[in-house]
Each structure stands twice: as structure tokens, then as C-alpha cells.
């Protein structure tokens, strides 16, 4: 437990930095959104920002394992503590974003907290899926090393492409509202799918991480 408590302490510090980074991304996204749309639609904004944050979490979670394995294991952190510390850090980041979003919904939008809670399972599910996908890709990187960087690059390109295409293709149809409706109508299923992705991605990562060696 003492190893885990050190790990939690370190990852709490890191989480603070990454939450700050997420806020910068969200603020930049909000300003861009205001510039792009003729008059802000405060209810649609969170969905677009969330997508950016999901992408960020995938890439961040993936890169995190690459960095931390070569950093904290040489400092005698066990692989188990690294894994659980990472999950805890992701939970902190996702939790903080959800709290900030809830505050935003409650203070700025007409749907208020009631609308936010209707969306919350879907938002949480998407966070779980992002973290799980990041863990899966992180595991692939740990297992296959440099070759996995190519996978990472291709994957990032594909995700960015799909996201960009969707936004541009449906921009006239009000993509943000479409997403919002989809999220609220399928919240339960999105949550369950997200948890399944988190469980499978996390398990694969746990197995790979448990046998990984420090390389640097």
C-alpha cells in the first residue's frame, strides 16, 4: 500500500497539471467556437469541447504509459502502483471536467443541471472509452515499442480525420445538436460501451505493463 500511496501522491500532482492543460484546451476551444459561430450557442458548445478533450485523453493516456514506464519504475514504483495510479489520475481529470461542465450547464445554459445529469452517463461513458482506448494503445506501445509510434500516428490521423469530416459535413445541419440528441437518447448504452472499452483496454494494458521492462 505504501507504494500505491506514493504513486497516488505523484499522480495527483500530475493530474493538477493535466487538468490545467485541459482547461486551456477548453478555453481555446470556446474562443474558437465563438469566432466560428455567428453568435454563441452555449448549450451546444460543451459537446464540441468534450470531443476535443476525449481526443486529448486518448493521446495523453497513450503517451502517459510511454513516459511513466521509463520514469517511475526506475524510481522503484511497482507496475501495479503505476497502473492504478494512472487510473486514479484519469478519474481525477475526467471527474474535474465533469464538475466544471456541470457548473457550466447550471450557470449558463437553459437546460441547467437537469440537462447535464441527463447527459452525464454518456459523457462519463465517452471518458471511460477514451481512457480505455488510450490504455489499449499505451499497451501496444509498451509491447511493440517504436513500431507502435507508427500506429499511434496513423490512429491519431484517422481519428482527427473522422472528427474533422463529421464536423464539416454536418456543420450546416447543426452537428452539435445532433450529437447532443444522440448522447441524451443513448446515454445508458454509451456508458456501458465506454465501461466495456475501459475494462478491456485496461486489462490488456495491465497484462502488458506487468511484464514490461524499462528501456531508455
Amino acid at each position: 500500500m505504501k507504494g500505491l500511496s506514493r504513486s497516488l501522491r505523484y499522480f495527483t500532482l500530475l493530474a493538477g497539471e493535466y487538468i490545467a492543460l485541459s482547461l486551456v484546451i477548453a478555453t481555446a476551444g470556446f474562443l474558437l467556437y465563438l469566432l466560428r459561430s455567428n453568435g454563441a450557442n452555449p448549450e451546444a458548445f460543451p459537446i464540441m469541447i468534450l470531443f476535443v478533450l476525449y481526443l486529448f485523453l486518448i493521446i495523453f493516456s497513450m503517451g502517459h504509459y510511454m513516459i511513466m514506464t521509463s520514469l517511475v519504475i526506475p524510481f522503484n514504483c511497482t507496475r501495479k502502483s503505476l497502473f492504478w495510479g494512472t487510473q486514479y489520475m484519469m478519474l481525477l481529470i475526467a471527474g474535474t471536467i465533469c464538475i466544471l461542465l456541470g457548473t457550466y450547464f447550471g450557470l449558463v445554459t437553459d437546460v441547467g443541471l437537469h440537462g447535464f445529469f441527463r447527459l452525464l452517463p454518456a459523457i462519463a461513458g465517452m471518458f471511460a472509452a477514451s481512457i480505455g482506448l488510450g490504455a489499449l494503445l499505451g499497451g501496444i506501445i509498451l509491447k511493440f515499442g517504436r513500431a507502435a509510434v507508427i500506429v499511434m500516428t496513423v490512429f491519431s490521423g484517422i481519428l482527427g480525420g473522422i472528427f474533422g469530416f463529421c464536423c464539416s459535413a454536418f456543420s450546416d445541419a447543426g452537428i452539435d445538436t445532433v450529437f447532443m440528441t444522440f448522447f441524451s437518447e443513448n446515454a445508458r448504452w454509451i456508458l456501458l460501451t465506454g465501461l466495456a472499452v475501459l475494462l478491456s483496454g485496461g486489462s490488456i494494458n495491465y497484462i502488458v505493463l506487468g511484464k514490461s521492462a524499462v528501456t531508455r
Binding site: R6, S7, I67, S70, L71, V72, F75, N76, R216
Partner: peptide, 23 residues
């Protein structure tokens, strides 16, 4: 030759991490 991973950290952050993990 490696610019990523632990090598991408600042020295003070590296030492900070060490101070947390070494009892």
C-alpha cells in the same frame, strides 16, 4: 539520444518525482 519519456522532463521535475518515490 532519446528526447521522449523521462528525458522530456525538466531536471527539477525529475528530482521531484524521485523524491516522492524513494522513501
Amino acid at each position: 539520444l532519446i528526447g521522449w519519456g523521462a528525458n522530456s522532463l525538466k531536471v527539477k521535475d525529475y528530482l521531484k518525482a524521485a523524491s516522492i518515490f524513494f522513501p
